[in-house]
Amino acid sequence: MDLDLRKVRYFVAVAELLHFGRAAEQLHIAQPVLSRQIRALEKDLDTTLFERDSHGVTLTTGGLQLLDDGRALLASADATRRRVQRSARGPHRLVVGFRAGIVVTHTVRAYGAAHPGIEVRARRVEWDDQERLILDGTVDLAYLRRPIREEGLTLLPLFAEPRVAMLPGDHRLAGKQDLVRTDLDGETWLRYADQGPDDVPIRSIEEKFEAVASGAGITLVPVSVAEQYSRPDITYVPVTDAEPDEVVLAWETARRSALIAGFVESVRG
């Protein structure tokens, strides 16, 4: 029997909330309907997915496996829908992603001028969605910063740029002409994957600003970020022996798109 994606979507909602009532509200369906759909899915799979008792709902081993696979399955289905819709609209729009600090204006405008029938848009991406947004078709290609999960992507190395220390304005090293990494020994380092205030991961450059300005720690950023973003409570100091930041252009390997190929060639040129 084929797996019903609607039932999988219902299952994932319950599995993430571990509460049938709240999941039903989120899905805008009645709770009895949701319960019947989950029971039908368990029958389809011949597997118990949830343990239900007076203390609440928990996932079985089979349920945990379906949660992992179901999320990927739904993401793949959503990506397929986007690709089909994009194809039906015709090859008349190109969406170019970019990370903070990377200026794409010149290339985007030049490509648009050379292809007046094509609508070219730029969209910012973040460290935690840069690959996904390419693979699910939200952006057609993107200027990314390493590290990058390369599976399914083709990368064109573009350039590397120096990195500078982002420090609070009143930091002991503020005002120095330059630094080396050992000057920063003993400092608390902030990275995007780290937990920020209230255990929320730091996701954007703006959130890094807030964390640094509050004294939570320091970080290294590409020099282009320092050039584009300034605040009176933040200072930047070059770190001469910091590993350079690498920028690449990335697109989905499996896609066959004349627009993407043309844009890549314009970047090469």
Rank of each mutant, 00 (worst) to 15 (best):
W127D: 05
D129G: 04
P91Y: 03
D69R: 14
T80K: 15
D78T: 05
A114P: 10
A100C: 11
I134G: 03
E151C: 00
H115S: 04
A114S: 15
T138F: 12
R109C: 04
H106M: 02
L155H: 09
A100K: 05
G112P: 08
V125G: 08
V125D: 05
G137M: 06
P116K: 12
T107V: 04
L73D: 02
F159V: 12
E150G: 13
V139F: 06
G112T: 08
G70T: 02
F98V: 00
P147D: 01
L158P: 07
H106E: 15
R71L: 09
R121L: 14
A114T: 06
E126M: 13
H92W: 07
A75V: 02
Y111Q: 07
Y111D: 05
E126K: 12
Q85V: 10
P116C: 11
G101V: 04
I134H: 05
H92T: 11
W127I: 01
Q130I: 01
Q130F: 01
H115P: 11
T107H: 12
R83Q: 12
V104H: 03
R81D: 06
G90Y: 11
V125L: 15
D69Y: 07
D128T: 00
T107F: 04
R89H: 13
L133K: 13
V139W: 04
A88K: 12
A113S: 13
R71W: 06
P116D: 07
L73T: 13
P147W: 03
H92I: 06
S87L: 10
D129M: 00
Q130A: 08
V120T: 12
L155I: 03
E150C: 11
G152N: 07
Y143K: 07
G137W: 05
T154S: 13
V96L: 14
L133A: 11
A72F: 08
A142Y: 10
L74P: 10
E131T: 10
E150K: 15
L156D: 11
R121H: 09
V104N: 05
V95P: 08
L73A: 15
D129E: 14
L158R: 06
E151Y: 01
L94Y: 06
R109A: 12
L156A: 08
G137A: 10
R82L: 05
A100H: 14
E150A: 15
G70Q: 04
L155A: 07
A100S: 15
P91H: 12
R123G: 04
T105Y: 09
G112R: 11
V103Q: 14
L135S: 01
Y143W: 15
T154I: 14
V96K: 03
G117L: 03
D78W: 03
A114Y: 11
Q130P: 00
E151H: 02
R83D: 09
S87Q: 14
H115F: 05
